[in-house]
Amino acid sequence: MTLHSVILVAGILFITGFLGVLLRRNTLIVLMSVELMLNAVNLAFVGFSRYNNTMDGAVFVFFIITVAAAEVAVGLAILVALFRRRQTVMLDTINQLKD
């Protein structure tokens, strides 16, 4: 188990989440992809923290997990409010501000 493999896995996870954000039109899937990107960053943080032999990165993961949980809660609340009004969660039909 080397640092390289950890960075490799984190990068693959991050790019998967990024492509999910770019390509999907369901807002729920897009939110899940954002979570996947945050998780990849967490993995890289722990890997580098272990590599540098300091505690700081591992403590920062704690904050990232908290922010991610708060973000999911707020995002899903916004999504439910949106669905109540527009009856859809598809990204390409939510373009009212575009016109």
Partner: peptide
């Protein structure tokens, strides 16, 4: 990813990952 945390000796973060992400966040999703 939690298993990778265990392999990196970050046991507390692995438990936190399972509890918060796989437990709370995905159930919410």
């Amino acid at each position: 990813v939690a298993g990778l945390f265990v392999l990196l000796n970050a046991f507390f973060l692995a438990v936190l990952q399972i509890l918060v992400y796989a437990g709370a966040v995905m159930v919410l999703f």
